[in-house]
Design a protein around this nucleic acid. Structure first.
Length: 562
DNA sequence: AAGATTCCCAACCGCTCATAA
DNA sequence: ATTATGAGCGGTTGGGAATCT
């Protein structure tokens, strides 16, 4: 055995060797974890003599530690004003920003994080890198892409693909992982997911974590024991409604009765913290919610910015009595914008899997959980552009963590559509990073009951189509686009070609190239819909297209990943 | 329940830099 | 100018805890 190995095993090292921190005799210095006694000696010495002179400290204090070890112990653990515990979200954000600017300059980063040590930051960063690499996610959020990235930022990026993705995509801000949230094993669904037959239009329900399939909070909420057994929605001409795959009980594989006409509101959060009380603004008047500029397109919800959004108003005494035809109460949410979208399969791997694996979802859920009971107040929601490794390729996918959507609300379950989404109701406080052209979708604080309003203009078929449930109700295989019926809105059925010609103009693209816009400002208090400045339009809108904003230069097509 | 794997983090190592002798 | 020393930085390691299988 080598001498150094032996010494290491024994937790000893002889002083005075090359590179050692100070002269000294032939002392056998201790290595390994510090004991409380050693700490006490060190603290006492520093309090008396101050920091520095670490080798003389060793010589005069009787500590059998090299000066270097003493310095490290003091700096990282014993000095006053050290912050302990997990990094806050702000700190995490700062670390990411600093790393984008500085690279692996841990000490310089630590200088800007009071109470934190370089070692802590380094450990945090390395863990983060590791996790994100494993998840195939880029290192940096998209909004940091324009920062001068230090070459050492690329440490841990093993190939050019990673490098590329690190520069043009967005990562999560939430590195902490929690696999199990709200009592659901998220991974159990992911691992059972099956790829859908069509990479374009199907989405596997199994690919959605169980938390996103939280069924209405009826007695004995079945969500925990249910899983999807089929892979896609189907259109039922008989019922003139969309049916969704049967649910099966995990143990018995039994089929949920009346499943096909049931609408499942999706709530990922536990009842704790989620405002399940009836919402005066949603519910039976769900159809009047101006969700026309919200669309579920190719697997995720999208906000479509409107030039002008009619003010809407709902009688405040309208209460939700939402029960589907199976008698399962669908929760009515106080917050109409709680959808974390995406569930679309991408080959054998769904975007949702990516998200989940990245820890983002878990983190969001964790945060939601950590913040306790939710109210509709003080919420900031996000439309993010996330980069995924899809089949080895780096792809951008727009993810709407925040879509104001009545989809989550309940209404008479005549539509029978399924909302494949994960509601993550959080008071997200951290700043969301978005590319400059993609403004933050923000939901301002509100208090009291929602005061929604009816549209002052009539509802066009296409705006009906934009309703998330309308899009959801599409039968991709049959190229039918079906706007779910409701109390107030007429049904519409469009062919695929009609649909896309409406969206993009004739012959302007293939399925999947849906223009997307995320430029909304939803003000909860008054339920106003305002376009944010600097709207980002994606795709080839027809300028005269009703309800749509003028064309813009910016082009982002998250759907293109499919 | 147990082994495997992953995560986390304290501590160490090798190196560089600054400075005093 | 050279050398010795102290201090600091960044990379790596190893062990315990947590989680997964």
């Amino acid at each position: 055995m080598e001498e150094s190995e032996r010494q290491h095993e024994q937790g000893e090292v002889r002083d005075g060797g090359p590179g050692d921190d100070g002269g000294g005799g032939d002392l056998v210095l201790k290595k390994g974890p510090w004991t409380a006694v050693e700490d006490a000696i060190l603290v006492a010495y520093v309090q008396k003599h101050g920091e520095g002179n670490w080798n003389s400290l060793r010589k005069h204090s009787g500590l059998l530690r090299c000066g270097k070890s003493c310095r490290l112990r003091w700096a990282n653990h014993l000095r006053p004003n050290l912050k302990k515990g997990a990094f806050t979200r702000e700190e995490e954000r700062l670390i990411i920003e600093l790393h984008a600017k500085l690279g692996n300059k841990w000490a310089r980063m630590a200088a800007q994080l009071p109470g934190r040590t370089d070692n802590e930051i380094k450990n945090y960063w390395n863990t983060r890198i590791k996790r994100r690499q494993r998840a195939g996610l880029p290192v940096y959020p998209l909004d940091l892409q324009n920062l001068p990235v230090h070459s050492s930022c690329l440490l841990g990026q093993s190939d050019s693909a990673s490098l590329s993705s690190s520069l043009d995509s967005e990562g999560d801000l939430v590195p902490s992982l929690k696999t199990e949230s709200h009592g659901f094993k998220l991974t159990s669904f992911q691992k059972k997911s099956q790829s859908c037959s069509s990479p374009v239009c199907d989405y596997t329900l199994d690919s959605v974590p169980s938390s996103s399939l939280n069924l209405p909070t009826c007695a004995g909420n079945p969500v925990k024991s249910m899983k999807r057994s089929a892979s896609s929605l189907s259109y039922s001409a008989e019922y003139e409604k969309i049916t969704f795959p049967q649910l099966s009980d995990e143990s018995s594989e039994g089929v949920l009765p009346n499943a096909k006409a049931k609408r499942f509101c999706v709530v990922s959060s536990s009842a704790e913290g989620f405002p399940l009380e009836p919402d005066p603004g949603i519910g039976s008047h769900f159809s009047s919610i101006p969700s026309r500029d919200l669309a579920f397109v190719n697997g995720f919800y999208t906000l479509f910015g409107l030039d002008s959004c009619p003010k809407m108003e709902l009688p405040s005494d309208q209460c939700v009595e939402a029960a589907d035809n199976a008698g399962v109460l669908a929760p009515a949410f106080s917050s109409p914008f709680t959808t974390l979208s995406l569930s679309k399969s991408v080959g054998s791997r769904s975007a949702y899997d990516c998200i989940s694996n990245s820890g983002l979802l878990e983190s969001l859920l964790q945060e939601s959980e950590a913040k306790g009971r939710r109210t509709p107040r003080d919420q900031t929601f996000v439309h993010k552009l996330e980069n995924f490794s899809v089949g080895g390729e780096s792809k951008n996918l727009a993810i709407d963590y925040s879509t104001p959507t009545a989809l989550s609300g309940s209404y008479p379950a005549t539509a029978g559509v399924d909302s494949i989404s994960a509601n993550v109701l959080c008071n997200w406080k951290y700043e969301i990073s978005l590319p400059p052209s993609m403004p933050i979708i923000k939901v301002e604080e509100s208090s009291g009951a929602l005061a929604c309003s009816y549209p002052s203009t009539d509802i066009s078929p296409i705006s009906d189509l934009w309703r998330p449930d309308g899009i959801l109700a599409s039968d991709w295989n049959n190229t039918k686009f079906y706007a779910a019926d409701s109390l107030a809105w007429p049904r519409e059925s469009l062919s695929e070609s009609d649909f896309f010609s409406l969206v993009k103009g004739p012959g302007s693209g293939r399925l999947g190239h849906i223009p997307m816009v995320a430029n909304h400002f939803w003000e909860l208090g008054s339920c106003q819909w305002n376009n944010m400045p600097g709207a980002c339009q994606i795709g080839d809108y027809q300028p005269d297209f009703r309800h749509f904003p003028p064309m813009a230069e910016q082009f982002i097509d998250p759907c293109a990943i499919f």
